[in-house]
Design a protein around this nucleic acid. Sequence first.
DNA 1: ACAAAAGTGTTTTTAATACACCCATGA
DNA 2: TCATGGGTGTATTAAAAACACTTTTGT
Lengths: 257, 257
Amino acid sequence: MIDFFSTLASMNVPGRNINPHISVDCVIFGFSTKMLKVLLIGREYTNPEGKLQKDYKLPGDFIANNEDLDLAASRTLEELTGLKDIYLQQFAFFGKPDRISRKEDIEWLKNNTGHDIHRVVTAAYYSLISVTVSSSESAIKNNATWIDIQHIPHLAFDHSTIISKGLAHLQGKLRSEPIGFELLPERFTIRELQTLYEVILGCTLDNRNFRKKILKSKYMVQLEEKQSGVAHKPAYYYRFDKNIYEKYKSASLGFNF
Amino acid sequence: MIDFFSTLASMNVPGRNINPHISVDCVIFGFSTKMLKVLLIGREYTNPEGKLQKDYKLPGDFIANNEDLDLAASRTLEELTGLKDIYLQQFAFFGKPDRISRKEDIEWLKNNTGHDIHRVVTAAYYSLISVTVSSSESAIKNNATWIDIQHIPHLAFDHSTIISKGLAHLQGKLRSEPIGFELLPERFTIRELQTLYEVILGCTLDNRNFRKKILKSKYMVQLEEKQSGVAHKPAYYYRFDKNIYEKYKSASLGFNF
DNA sequence: ACAAAAGTGTTTTTAATACACCCATGA
DNA sequence: TCATGGGTGTATTAAAAACACTTTTGT
């Protein structure tokens, strides 16, 4: 399935039976060059004075009438990145009546859907992907760009709020489950993993204690390859073994209050 | 606002502008006589053979067109229990296309809303209230009953799923934040609190260690009153001080993986 | 030889766990 | 006086935190 206009364009495909009250939005996190990034879709709209403007929006779509929400989210993700089996999780619902209230947003929806839409409740998902594999054709077609989470520009609708809520959920999840791997390529160094933790959690971590903690877990598999071409002692690569993790993951958590 | 029929009846109030695609459902937890309970609404419907049947549903409602989701949830809760300022949290949304598919459910919606409704996405909230204060007039009017979580009967729609997901979220939350107090009356004994933890988490806890852990926290305020009329050493009552908790709550959590 | 990041151990502190008896009350 | 549940302390173990130097590579 190809989108010509934007991720919303599939609405206009004949035979697709759209539910214009409910949408899904994906906060797609990626990590590269020591920065946490979000995949955003460039959007063009004409402002009240008739000027052509650019801003960004989250990848999202209205759901089809017979479509499961989770499936709509993975469909959106796949249409955009070409990727399946990506870590994807529902985290909140956004339904303020005024979340679609700016003139340019209503105008843009009209141009892109043909309908006069004022109230949409959206199911928000976050997903984690490795930046290296994400520059798919359809992403380019959709004006998708990785943007540093520190430098998010003006966004459509309430998408800034959705991103910050999504980040908060990601932080919580990162503390309770080893999901950092989802954001890194197949093989990675421990330092890369640590930097990822530091960036997402917004703190520095003691590097000896971090290694101790991480290497204690059985699911970190050291590879034979080392880094090469670096002007310092080369680091070993590791990979994350999901099977081992599933086998050993501890059932009981302690208290935290 | 008074509901004559059920929590859905407010749909029929003229002038209320209903959005029949989106609803809220509340999993209202309570705790009494050493059991975790859920507040359910008795529902009568006619089965395919024309027989009058009884089952239960979660308190919930369609949202109004201009209504915020969170507000719709607290409204539903207030209409049912008369209570405001209750611990209330969105925890998931349910949007499988077939969640409204049983004949009796579709029929029941038709009778109660006048519409032929097949697809509703619902935002699920859980709330914690002290059972003692919940037997309000409107709850009785709405056929609300406390039902042991162990003995949930047949429920409408996918409401059993919603309850079990809600319970899982409650368990997670209970481990990470002191919310047990919300389920107890203003003053309570430490043993009551421990039993609550044991029931919700489904395990037994060492009573000396539990006391140590709980009493270490500043927000447990011992009152002067003791139990009376009990055939054993009377326990001191405590109360939870929210202000102290907010002041001292630890910013950083550790890792858990 | 120098810069730059990788890798490594020990000590201290804190939190979690395991465990058994005396106390105050009503019946 | 007995049955019932309330309340208490200590020793052990496990995890978290603090902390500094040596190693390997490219330039």
